[in-house]
């Protein structure tokens, strides 16, 4: 086999795994949109906030230390503990549940029945608030995220493929871990929505708000539930992306990578978010591999959005989105 084939294979495999990372971000958007028709602009910032909280709790950082020091003239910074990663993750998940509760209580409750564009704008405000709040709470310095995730080239894959093909393929262990976590996450979400009472309620709300309300399902409870799950997904996305770059405020920009995935996969489909992510991931990487060198490179963002645009033209609801039928 020609060397170019193995290079392309390597690019495609890495594209698929990168696509999984995009899907992790897109999933949070889908869950909230599906249940409430809110495009949650704050999803990227939620990933940032969750990652900040995780590192802060794990390393025993005193929240709002700078503010407290400025007011009281103290010199607080750390409590002096180092929490095990799992404990820190559970505590962060609890913070995200509290966040979901507060969002429902302080924002969504007051906007019931408003136009989707109003709710969208509310999430823009929420994104800016949360970014500033995260800064005040945990500080703006870049933090190393260390919860024991494997990282670096998978020597097993490299040596095996080296033996088979004469060229050792590169696969990042972190990407494999992300794919496993995403697989578990989607399985648990599917089981939850199919086999639990709350899951059925969630699906009922997603299908028809009015009908769900008429049979006694609490919309407010569902919103807290959905925002909590979206918060947990944001935590997973924040951890995976933060492991690559450290936890810093640019992390919120990962939302930019989720948009073409949503346009392609549809805003209302969990499988759509996964398949959309995979198509965008592998498509942009192969395009960069084959066409990039001919036109100067850095084509990935461009390609992702153009591909999504083409899909929109032919299938506005996305690959797996619900078909829009309006009867007059």
């Amino acid at each position: 086999m020609p060397e170019q084939f193995y290079f392309a294979l390597e690019v495609a495999l890495n594209g698929l795994l990168t696509g999984v990372m995009y899907s992790l971000v897109a999933l949070g958007f889908v869950l909230i949109y599906k249940s409430s028709e809110i495009f949650n602009y704050a999803q990227g910032v939620m990933a940032l906030f969750a990652a900040l909280t995780l590192v802060g709790l794990q390393t025993g950082q005193v929240p709002f230390a700078e503010l407290i020091n400025a007011i009281f003239g103290t010199h607080l910074s750390h409590f002096g503990w180092q929490l095990p990663p799992l404990v820190a993750i559970v505590l962060t998940a609890a913070v995200m549940v509290l966040f979901a509760f507060l969002v429902e209580r302080l924002i969504l409750r007051h906007l019931v029945g408003q136009e989707p564009i109003i709710l969208f704008m509310a999430t823009i405000g929420l994104a800016y608030f949360l970014e500033g709040f995260g800064d005040l709470m945990w500080g703006s310095e870049i933090k190393k995220l260390d919860i024991g995730l494997p990282q670096g080239i998978s020597e097993t894959v490299e040596s095996l493929t080296g033996k088979w093909f004469g060229y050792g393929l590169f696969i990042d262990k972190l990407d494999i871990a992300a794919a496993v976590v995403a697989g578990i996450l989607v399985t648990v979400l599917t089981l939850f929505s199919q086999y639990t009472k709350q899951g059925r309620a969630l699906r009922a709300v997603a299908d028809d708000h009015q009908a769900a309300l008429s049979v006694g399902i609490s919309l407010r409870f569902i919103w807290v539930l959905v925002w909590s799950i979206a918060g947990f997904i944001a935590l997973v996305a924040g951890v995976m992306w933060g492991a690559k770059s450290g936890v810093q405020f640019s992390l919120s920009l990962i939302a930019l990578k989720a948009l073409p995935v949503l346009m392609l996969g549809g805003f209302t489909s969990i499988p759509g978010a996964i398949v959309g992510g995979l198509i965008i991931g592998v498509g942009e990487k192969l395009f960069e591999f084959w066409v990039g060198p001919l036109i100067g490179g850095a084509t990935e963002n461009w390609f992702a959005y153009v591909l999504a645009l083409i899909f929109l033209v032919f299938r506005p609801q996305g690959l797996f989105g619900e078909k829009i039928i309006e009867r007059v």
């Binding site: 990042d172 990962i254 990935e300 963002n301």
Partner: peptide
């Protein structure tokens, strides 16, 4: 060899695979 990275630069897999090759 020129390897541009799109803003903000969170995803650089293509560039580093190219460097590896």
């Amino acid at each position: 060899m020129l390897l541009p990275v799109d803003h903000p630069g969170q995803e650089q897999k293509s560039q580093w695979l190219q460097i590896r090759r």
